[in-house]
Design a protein around this nucleic acid. Structure first.
Lengths: 261, 261
DNA sequence: TGAATAGTGTCTCTCAGACATTATACT
DNA sequence: AGTATAATGTCTGAGAGACACTATTCA
């Protein structure tokens, strides 16, 4: 048995087979700040891509943590959140990116994660990150014709590595997730109104939704939201009655789904 | 610049940060053999889990190949298929599995892939695999009441590592993929009949589908299938007219989707 | 000849979207 | 007071599922 183990060990340690690959996790953290979908970016403090913006992330601690743990740790470090606050954050694996030349130093494979968070405090710079900021995702806003031409904050930054691709994949995943899961509620406080929920969908999908139909649809999906009996303290600032308050229901999948227009 | 690069290089090479992690790809290859959904398994020729069945896979060649390439290479090696035959195989990333103790030797992270293939020839044992076989996936068959209690070939084999979990995730992904993509055609020859396509859905979903409604539904989805004008040479062995032949259409997404019952 | 199937037609129910309406609350 | 909104109601068309029917082929 010792001999077998030793042989296997040596085989596994063939340096050409594994040594020159490093493994990192990168996290696409999405939140809504002042109604705008925003993503957490850090400024790289050292080469390569020094001074460029990148996703928060870092190396997986070998032998100590799994991938999900590593992503949660990076998320906590970069946002400065207490573990309790992290419980309300949805974190899921997005995919792995491993082109041999994606990092000029060496072959680095990154496992990307996607996080949905309610409005989080300003991030703190940590580790090798010079700065950390929330950047609005200039989604396809205005949908129709001549909305005023806002600058596209995210598009203006040329992200490091292949992070632009990762962000694009993450946004597409997020848009899809809203269709068949109740994860839009992860962007809101524990109690929310239907119009607030609709604003989440409108911001992430970049489409205006019909208020009446959306309202009826959400209430008709079993387990999506639960009535709290309470009512919002303030009505809409532009007038109208105070909306009822709901909390997330027990459903983990929406049946039937809310399909994009 | 040289100094900066050197510093970064050294930082990246901190042995504790990366050295003890190995990276592999594992492939869940699904095909239909005699109408049964089957998965490709290899018998491990060495420890750990010697003699147990596992997914085909291997180490990523550092600095030489990306993840998709590595998966395609492992697929070709293990099935013994020519590159031309592989063009008809659908290959996509499933997810990454990286619990620190999933391999008793060391921390090994595996990027799992999912492949859909038309009926493939018998596999060849290669590399460190003692044997390679197609194993029927004893899906939830018979659906209703007392179907005869067949042995469950896949369930009887205790797979190595966490491969049982990977296979379960792969099957769930495959079931979902049939809903909103035309990938069921990847299990068939270039020309196929609607009843053959229905058999794919029934086998993977483990549900009987209504022949008439399925037929009408498939033809109503734009770009799903194209009529070849030809007709199958033989009718069903139990009687009935000869079915028309179709080929896969240009659609990459099904609108509207074929939802599971 | 008998039986099972390919393909089409019909009906009903559900659901999404367009539109209308009433009550409420902010400015 | 004026206005925008929350919430509900109504109508219509698309689509899924159940069922029926005909024509065709194999055993």
């Amino acid at each position: 048995m010792h001999e077998d183990d030793e042989a296997a060990w040596l085989a596994a340690y063939d340096p050409r087979a594994y040594a020159p690959i490093a493994l990192t996790v990168d996290v696409v953290v999405l939140t809504l700040r002042q109604g705008r979908l925003s993503i957490l970016l850090v400024e790289r403090g050292g080469p390569p891509f020094q001074g460029r913006w990148a996703l928060p992330g870092g190396f997986v601690k070998a032998g100590e943590e799994g991938l999900d743990e590593a992503a949660a740790r990076e998320l906590a470090e970069e946002t400065g959140l207490a573990p309790t606050a992290l419980e309300r954050v949805h974190l899921e694996q997005l995919g792995s990116y491993g082109a041999p030349d994606r990092d000029p130093r060496m072959h680095v494979v990154s496992v990307a994660y996607l996080a949905f968070a309610p409005d989080l405090p300003d991030p703190r710079a940590g580790g090798d990150a010079a700065r950390a900021v929330w950047v609005p995702v200039a989604g396809p806003h205005g949908g129709g014709t001549g909305d005023r031409e806002l600058p596209a904050p995210l598009a203006e930054r040329e992200l490091a590595f292949d992070h632009a691709r990762i962000v694009a994949d993450a946004l597409e995943r997020a848009r899809g997730k809203l269709e068949y899961t109740p994860l839009a509620t992860a962007f809101l406080r524990p109690e929310f109104t239907i119009p607030e929920l609709r604003a989440v969908y409108e911001e992430i999908w970049g489409e205006r939704l019909h208020p009446g139909n959306f309202h009826r649809k959400v209430l008709s999906v079993p387990g999506f939201v639960e009535d709290t009996g309470a009512t919002a303290e303030r009505g809409n600032s532009r007038g109208g009655p105070r909306a009822r308050l709901y909390r997330a229901g027990p459903a983990t999948l929406l049946h039937p789904a809310l399909l994009r227009p």
